[in-house]
Design a protein around this nucleic acid. Structure first.
Lengths: 209, 209
DNA sequence: TTGACAAGTGACCGCTCGTTCGCTATAATA
DNA sequence: TATTATAGCGAACGAGCGGTCACTTGTCAA
């Protein structure tokens, strides 16, 4: 009950900031969406900017927890088709989880105004996915699923187009279905280009390593 | 002399809007950067929003002129290395032309607030480059430079990673050199993957079609 | 029961915003 | 030369902003 309101203010701030931007958001409207009056906000935050900073702190902590350690990396796919499936599942989450969507929008529109937002934007939009798939592709090459190549280059070539379609979904949600189909097609094209065993992808059912 | 000031206001608006956003920009500061006082602005525009609309009109007209017709498409490269060279030249312009950079930033930060900005953003960040390279790759396949494949898929796979690095340069200009090197490496990797005549790329000096 | 504290309220403050308006200087037009 | 339109100026306006403060209410410990 104590810092529950504080948390709700942060949630409302994420929503409004991601839609109207920091400058376009006013505190009266923000607190009104929680059934409060603007002066109540100052019981929980010193001022508007402190909301912004707390929001960024939370985002940084969240991503340190989810992407910081190598422990919670996804399992390396056993087949090429499994790579497509895993990709689609990850994209589905990232597109439909509202908080993740709002975070992405927020970083997009505030990246030129705030330095920490800028850093986070690069991590999100570029580095993290790439590093993750660098690890995955390394594993898949060791398993003989992908042809030998620079795994980081492949990860970049794989994740950047997918990222661009995720951004498209943020911008024009009505194109989400189309974008998802494109991602699937692209992923399929990717494994046709870089995968081994093109002839019988779902073959070699079990047994050996 | 008459509408010269009007034009200068639009230039200053592009600069300030792209840095601070529409809401973060105030007219006093904008006009002061031109040595004017804020009330003078109203001799040229009805209000702040009309500046924004005029700016978007200009951008739409510019892109209709530069990308609308098929006439001013670049020539299809004659060799694979030429593709890399052409790419680097295009990227160089798009990264160092300040007006283009500011336009991209503006569309990035205002895409969720204004519908026309949203449409333009998709055109810029996704559609236009892809269509251009679809045409180029079609031509290169016909010339036997690229292996037969879906040219649109290849164009997407080629331009999306490059776009993502262009966005990186907008966000963190100090990484420009690094990004340019990455683009060159990526482009080289691309022609190694999809190009024919891998053994002697610069060979077949002349003569045949 | 009392005291202390946290949380919410509403009135208010100063400031900045976008915008208006009457004025002046300039330069082209008649 | 007289007239008129243009462009810039500076003072002023109302509205809305972020922020402050004295006050009330509810909760819980002493």
């Amino acid at each position: 009950m104590a810092n529950d309101t504080k948390e709700r203010i942060l949630e409302a701030a994420l929503e409004m900031f991601s839609q109207k931007g920091y400058d376009g958001t006013n505190i009266r409207e923000l607190t009104a969406s929680l059934g409060l009056v603007k002066s109540s906000m100052y019981k929980h935050f010193e001022n508007k900017e402190e909301i912004w900073n707390a929001l960024l702190d939370k985002m940084i902590a969240y991503y340190a927890q989810h992407f910081g350690s190598r422990e919670n990396l996804p399992p390396v796919p056993e087949t090429l088709d499994e790579l497509v499936g895993m990709t689609m599942r990850m994209v589905d989450v990232t597109i439909h989880d509202e908080k993740i969507v709002m975070t992405r929008k927020l970083l997009t529109i505030e990246q030129f105004r705030d330095e920490r937002a800028r850093e986070l934007a690069t991590k999100h939009f570029l580095t993290e996915l790439k590093e993750m798939f660098t690890y995955i592709f390394e594993g898949m090459m060791n398993k003989g699923l992908l042809r030998q190549d620079d795994p980081e280059m492949l990860a970049f070539a794989y994740t950047a187009p997918i990222s661009s379609l995720i951004h498209l979904c943020d911008r024009e949600p009505e194109k989400t279905d189309d974008a998802l189909a494109q991602i699937k097609t692209f992923s399929g094209h990717f494994i046709k280009t870089y995968g081994k065993n093109n002839a019988n992808r779902t073959a070699v059912p079990s047994g050996n390593e």
